[in-house]
Amino acid sequence: MTTTSLNLTKKYRLRHYTEPVVFSLMLGASFFAVLTTLGIVLSVASESYRFFSAVPLQSFLFGTEWAPSSPIPSFGFVPLIVGTLLITIIALAVAAPIGILSAVYMAEYATPRARAFAKPLLELLAGIPTVVLGFFAALTVAPFIRAMGAQVGLTIASESALAAGLVMGMMIVPLISSLSDDVINAVPQAMRDGSYAMGATQSETIRKVVLPAAFPGIVSAFILAISRAIGETMIVVMAAGLAPNLSINPLAAVTTVTVQINAMLVGDQEFDSAKTLSAFALGLTLFVLTLILNVIALRVVRQYKEHYA
């Protein structure tokens, strides 16, 4: 590039100065992702550090009482994570069958026309903001469940884990179904042909060959779905409630990690009180938890892809 025997225009020489600048700008832009992660880790971790210098890590991780506002506050994480997991399990119980069966339908049974209807349908559901689903859970589903419970003589809390879990389940249906759809489509056609040639029906082929072959991919879809459910905020803030009950009763009111993060930061924030800082400790825990789940899921998917490469 430094040959000068050619008659170089001014513009060409200018390029020598601008191109490195443009290059560093682009490099800098890509660093933003790293910076964001660093920002999350450093800021959330430093506030958490301050929290843990006031509240011992052990009493946080293993404490069974969450009462940040009481005169002698206690910051036990256990009721929050139990509530979170309870809702997640309910959500998964709804989303796993619906998601996988929809994916099977889309990948195996649907005619191109039916697919052209079903796929946008799932995308539409995926595009609905969670605050809308939260509103629906709190003002329509929860009263409905309560009324149903009253019919059969059950008392159900007006903010029950069940209502939040059911709606959250519908929220993660598109996630599970689109990921499963992808992995089912990645199962080689030769595998299906082998089964059909044996005289298997389509459902036998799906249940005994296709789904087992797609199993690792489906598992990673589940893991990502769990991660989504754990980190979801609005549905639980609006429908699950604030009561830190240590309970695995789906009809009771429970609270979750994200609900409490929100609750700790509403109103006056005092960045020297353990109460406000606890939001960051919860955030850090949530971040680590979902990060682990995502890494596992991505690894499973990668192995699966290599398997059928």
Partner: peptide
């Protein structure tokens, strides 16, 4: 019965 060009054992 049928046998294919590329062996296609089931993932079992």
């Amino acid at each position: 019965g049928m046998v294919f060009q590329k062996p296609n054992p089931f993932p079992k």
